[in-house]
Design a protein around this nucleic acid. Structure first.
Lengths: 128, 128
DNA sequence: CACGGCATTTACGTAAAAGTCAATTTGCGC
DNA sequence: GCGCAAATTGACTTTTACGTAAATGCCGTG
């Protein structure tokens, strides 16, 4: 496991721009260390970036991704905070389950659509 | 099955604004019929709205949703077009399968996070 | 030490997806 | 046929998530 990654290494790996990584830092999603003014990204930062991009693909906003990332962190020490966090996590999981239902429905409709197309091809006498 | 719905009925049902529905019409996603200037939404429009909102929850842009909706429509008559459409559908399905992987990973990490919280509560001597 | 090549900061720009507001227009309920 | 809530249109504004440009810093190499 490498100790540090440069900003351009990560932009190439993930197919994003330096602007995007700096933006995520401004938004408090990542906090790479510095050598002088230069950012050095640790493996943990790299993992965070993966989580951020995953969240993006699922249609979460930066604010939502920030919330989700906080859920992955060390649980708080105070009981009330812990219970609140558990409730929040459960809410987010419910949201994800809704997304899963949406996803399955969309996949099913696309299956139908493709089948219709194939059928139509057969009608036209095309040997698939 | 009702023949027509008014715009406000649908905004209430789906929890969106009239502005949003008109915006979707401007974008060519729906095309309710008119009586004078008033829009009348048919069940098929209602179903389209459901599909649009599903797409939105999955993080698709209007442009992407427009593409997906076209995939649900009657397959084209020409062989080349049909094959193209089948390829497009397959691409979109692959994208959805990626989203499903993202979703399962995120759910798994949230499961872990919740478990950590519960564990921490037990350490603090809280009877769940 | 000058140079090329990344990095950084600051500042402004922009596209998408609506929200908001104001000024009409309609149509149904009596 | 009238009144008024509901609907429409058009213009303008807002938010999010970066893109882009300009000016400057840092650093290894020949």
């Amino acid at each position: 496991m490498r100790e540090y990654y440069t900003i351009t290494e990560l932009t190439r790996e993930f197919g994003i721009s330096t602007r995007t990584l700096r933006f995520y830092e401004d938004e408090g999603l990542i906090a790479p260390v510095r050598r002088g003014r230069t950012r050095l990204f640790r493996p943990s930062d790299r993992h965070l970036i993966r989580q951020i991009l995953r969240g993006k693909r699922l249609g979460f906003s930066i604010a939502e991704i920030r919330e989700i990332i906080q859920m992955y962190r060390e649980p708080p020490g105070e009981v009330g905070q812990l219970k609140l966090m558990i409730r929040r996590i459960e809410e987010k999981r419910e949201e994800l389950r809704q997304k899963r239902r949406d996803l399955e429905e969309t996949l099913a409709e696309l299956d139908d659509a493709e089948e219709n197309c194939v059928e139509r091809l057969v009608e036209l006498g095309v040997t698939t």
